[in-house]
Design a protein around this nucleic acid. Structure first.
Lengths: 168, 168
DNA sequence: AATAGATAATACATAAGTGTATTATATCGA
DNA sequence: TCGATATAATACACTTATGTATTATCTATT
């Protein structure tokens, strides 16, 4: 099964019609999109029984990965790759579920401090086994050298995207 | 500049707290998400002057890459990587803008035929130079061998995601 | 030919995400 | 110390995306 074939064939035709079209970058971008959607859907399916979705999972895991399980919304936006307006909504949801807590920052009164609650921590530890399984299954056919190489290439790609903001 | 650092550091801490957590797959998934978001935002910015957004662009390009500039919604969903309900909405928008046309399929009356209009084709050819520039800029630091390797690894990854549906 | 079960597309309600404006606080330079 | 500018978070309206149910048509079996 090759879910990318219909896309790839059409990019090939595009190149014939419009020779300046850069096939390779276009293929990479499309692959990224397809993979992203797949991973997103898989994660949502796994997480549903716990009452959270993939973006909420991302938020929780970024808090779990922070010393003291504490950070503020703008740091969270950077870490989770979400826009700040979306962070407000997502953290509202997580507060409603009592998985995180919002308190005022003592140092800078513009800031808000978000902290994982005991309930949030317990939830993370309960879904992590399934998440670890999922991640392992999704990459089961990649050898560790291949993953390392993929990581390196994706980082290089991302670094160019970081720079490209300057240009244009 | 390294926009991935905050994420990566948190994944490292996660591995310390929860040793079974598979760092490498998690890093790959996060990198994919970050890159996807960046590429999506860049494309939206470039396309705005033409009155379309990235998903609409994806649809138009898949039609452009099809013989006869014609296909039906389910093929389009596969090719563009969108869910079918979303295809209905997106193609409605494109019909409203007169960039594509909807007609009944003669063979199978359940089906609908979508065709690029002359206006749609003209629009594509007017934005393609900018899109080609963007794609080239976004990948400017990758050598062609690196892109080929990235393509190969991403395809391998995606093929596993295609299979993973069977399992679990 | 009738029915059962698949497939194609869409409608509708709801969820998820974003742009822009707003409020509050902080910082910097005169 | 004042005022200008920057930063942090959020509110709100709007856009984008999805799940589920529905309608219509097709296919296969009898």
């Amino acid at each position: 099964m090759n879910s990318f074939l219909p896309t790839e064939q059409r990019l090939a035709i595009t190149c014939r019609l419009y020779p300046a079209f850069p096939r390779e970058p276009a293929v990479l971008v499309r692959l990224i999109k397809h993979i992203h959607k797949r991973v997103h859907d898989d994660a949502n399916a796994i997480l549903k029984p716990w009452g959270i979705n993939h973006p909420e999972y991302n938020i929780l895991m970024m808090m779990y990965g922070t010393e003291g399980f504490t950070l503020n919304p703008s740091q969270l936006a950077d870490a989770a790759g979400e826009k700040s307006a979306n962070i407000t909504r997502l953290t509202n949801e997580l507060c409603d579920k009592a998985l995180i807590e919002r308190t005022a920052d003592a140092e800078d009164r513009r800031k808000v401090t978000l902290t994982l609650t005991a309930k949030g921590l317990a939830l993370i530890e309960s879904f992590l086994p399934d998440i670890c399984d999922l991640l392992a299954r999704e990459t089961a056919n990649l050898q560790s050298g291949e993953m390392a190489q993929l990581e390196q290439l994706l980082k290089k790609f991302l670094s160019q995207l970081d720079n490209a903001a300057d240009q244009a």
